Amino acid sequence: MGLVVQKYGGTSVGSIDRIKAVADRVVRARDGGNRIVVVVSAMAGETNRLFKLASELSQSPNARETDVLVATGEQVSAALLAIRLQSMGHPTVSFLAFQMNLTTDSNHGRARIKSVQCDRVMRSLDDGKIVVVAGYQGVNPDGDITTLGRGASDLTAVALAAALKADACEIYTDVDGVYTADPNVCPKAKKLGRISYDEMLEMAGLGAKVLQTRSVELARRYNVPLVVRSSFSEVEGTWVGQEDQSMEDVLVSGVTLDQNQSKITVAGVEDRPGLAAKIFSPIADAGIVVDMIIQNASADGRTDMTFTIGREDL
């Protein structure tokens, strides 16, 4: 009997009918002889709706309270899926982050996972239950709710798969795999049957939205087998794993585009050693990822420094 972690994104659980379809797929996997842990995102559009509510009350909503608010989206999805599975005659239990001790740091809005305690999950699996977990959320050492960053239900799934030593982590989304380019932009893009962690990490970091960058990093670190599949079809997806000999024959795996970048220029700064560290260290401490950095040639002892970050971090 294998242990499989399945993750379903917002579009996959975006309506009652789609939640029913997810439940059917989970049951088929269970009937195939597997122990199943399911990680769910909030229903499509729900997280944006919750952020909008907060912004209507404050121009700068408190980060702690915002996490308390937006984490409810995944709680709703987890409970609804568990209710559906129970109604189909399958023992099921749902867990939130604090119930599994999925511990993070205190960086609200983009917290990093410190540890996952899977004792309750394993006991439930040993009792023959399907386990449904709310993705995206954690709890800090003070017991406060945190969130892991947009799209981070993937990260929850990979962290659970690593902690449980799962046989596979299946990421279900609205596309049926990883393509050589965005098929919405390039109709002739081809689906890849297999891609290495490093290649997927490059593509995710450069704009491919199929997998979240941090989830790929974690999968590579703990050698978690990943497969990206569509929740709307039975088509075989794309496996993400260690590089093999056949992969070395491919010079270019894919082309990506990221339209969600903001450019910042710090003008007229002193051109002296240590200045870059003074600029970028606080940004790093805030958990913001800087992509490209350009420093112009110095003129009269001063220079311009330009860098890019994700638009949501602007």
Rank of each mutant, 00 (worst) to 15 (best):
L211T: 01
V131D: 04
T104D: 10
V121P: 05
D105A: 01
A297W: 09
V70I: 14
A79L: 10
T147R: 12
A79C: 11
A152D: 03
L125E: 08
A63C: 03
S41G: 10
D126P: 02
I130A: 00
E243C: 12
I264F: 07
D244E: 15
V26M: 03
T180L: 07
G151P: 01
V38D: 11
N223F: 10
L218G: 00
T213R: 07
M122P: 07
Y8Q: 03
D182Q: 06
A78L: 11
G2Q: 10
V133Q: 07
L53E: 12
K52Q: 15
T308C: 09
V76F: 09
L164H: 02
N184Q: 08
V289M: 11
S115R: 12
S12R: 01
N184P: 00
P141E: 14
N184W: 02
N140A: 05
Q137Y: 02
G301E: 05
K263N: 02
T303N: 06
E243T: 13
I36W: 05
V116C: 11
L53G: 12
A71Q: 04
A78D: 10
S55K: 13
D258F: 06
T146K: 07
N184M: 05
A82G: 12
W239K: 13
V158P: 04
L57A: 14
R150D: 12
T156K: 04
V93M: 09
M203E: 10
I288K: 00
